[in-house]
């Protein structure tokens, strides 16, 4: 009885998560294409790295159920969440050092001028 109800519900949830994840991925890619300079593109890439990956992996987890596969999927997600900010930060740093200038960025109220 519950099985018969649970199965379609899980399928629907994972369908929603998958389409949401793919939509966010395309959003991030469009942002990367559309935004004017490197630093703003970095933000758009952040969308694909965090919530998009999370939703797609969560959808796969729902498909897999409680098993070692789900644990591995959770590990992939955890790993992506750990590495993507490090990669983004390293990119931003390298860009600043290589002399890429942010296009018309306003200075925020700074506590210490660089």
């Amino acid at each position: 009885m519950t099985e018969a109800l649970l199965e379609p519900a899980l399928d629907l949830a994972s369908l929603l998560l998958l389409s949401g994840g793919v939509f966010l991925g395309i959003t991030g890619a469009v942002g990367v294409l559309r935004f004017p300079d490197f630093f703003t593109r970095l933000h758009a890439a952040g969308v694909t790295d965090t919530l998009s990956a999370g939703m797609i992996l969560a959808a796969l987890m729902l498909q897999a159920g409680l098993s070692l596969i789900s644990v591995k999927l959770a590990f992939i997600l955890l790993f992506l969440l750990y590495t993507s900010p490090v990669a983004s930060h390293a990119l931003a740093r390298a860009a600043v050092h290589a002399g890429v200038k942010p296009v018309d960025a306003k200075p925020g109220e700074s506590s210490s001028p660089s």
Binding site: G25, G28, A29, V32, F38, R41, L42, A45, T48, D49, A53, I56, L57, L60, L73, I76, L80, S84, A87, L91, A94, A95, A98, V100
Partner: peptide, 22 residues
Amino acid sequence: SICDRILAVNMIGTKTVLLIAV
């Protein structure tokens, strides 16, 4: 810039991980 290219390549890499999983 070269950084834009690496950003894009990194993004493709992340998506490749998801693609392999799917």
